[in-house]
Computed example of a mutant assay.
Amino acid sequence: MLIQLDLENAEPIYIQLQQQIIEGIAKKQLNPGESLPSVRSMAADIGINLHTVNKAYQHLKQDGYILIHRQKGVVINPDGVPKADGAYKEKLKANLRPFIADSVCRDLSEEEFIKYCSSIFAEFYNEEGDS
């Protein structure tokens, strides 16, 4: 999996890295039990501070995407990502609210918004099928 970060983007680098790893898991480019580079190795490979990588890894660990073992290193959760529960769904709703509010302010209809969501879902399912 190729990590591509935009250092000019307003989005913090650790969030970009976290999102790219999550996309890699969703697209089946990263599989359960597969190893990720160590914090130091990842930082050196993509040319960013090791604390930035560590922060991304800690967030991924907290959300159940990865496990960090002293002996095995960093691995994609062998049991898979935890399924959506009530807490996840509440967090999802909270995260979507600003996007929906912004869309309403910009006169984007619910149908258009859903169309964009559907097209993004399709990207993941199509790429998964192509792997």
Rank of each mutant, 00 (worst) to 15 (best):
C105R: 15
L67G: 05
R70K: 12
G80P: 07
G47N: 04
G129Y: 07
D107F: 12
I76T: 03
E11R: 12
Y125P: 00
Q20K: 13
A44M: 11
S103C: 01
L108A: 07
L67M: 12
A56L: 02
L96K: 06
P78V: 09
I68F: 05
L30K: 05
I15S: 03
S131L: 13
D63G: 10
P37C: 02
G47L: 08
I100T: 11
P82I: 05
I25F: 09
K89Q: 14
H51L: 10
K83A: 13
I3S: 04
L17Q: 02
E128H: 14
I25W: 03
G64V: 05
I120A: 11
D45G: 07
I100G: 10
Y65W: 12
G73C: 04
L36R: 00
E110S: 15
E23A: 12
I120C: 07
L50T: 06
A10T: 11
I76H: 00
E110T: 14
E23Y: 10
Q62L: 11
Y57F: 08
A84T: 06
Y116L: 15
I22L: 00
Y88Q: 10
S38T: 12
Q71G: 01
E8V: 11
A43D: 08
A10C: 05
I114W: 06
P78A: 09
V39Q: 14
L7P: 00
D63W: 08
L36I: 03
G24H: 03
S131R: 15
I100E: 12
E127K: 12
Y116G: 13
I66A: 07
L5C: 03
R70N: 13
G33D: 09
Q62M: 06
E123S: 10
Q16R: 07
I3P: 04
Y57M: 03
Q58G: 00
G33V: 01
N95T: 10
G86Y: 05
Y14D: 11
V75H: 05
R106Y: 06
L5K: 04
I46T: 06
M1F: 04
R40K: 15
K115M: 08
L67D: 05
D63A: 12
E8G: 02
K91T: 08
A84N: 06
F124D: 01
G80K: 14
N49K: 08
I48M: 01
N49G: 02
A94K: 15
S38R: 05
D107M: 09
Q29C: 07
L92T: 10
H51K: 06
F99V: 10
Q19C: 03
F121A: 14
S35R: 08
I22E: 09
L7N: 00
V53D: 01
Q18L: 13
G47E: 02
R40T: 14
Q58K: 15
D102H: 13
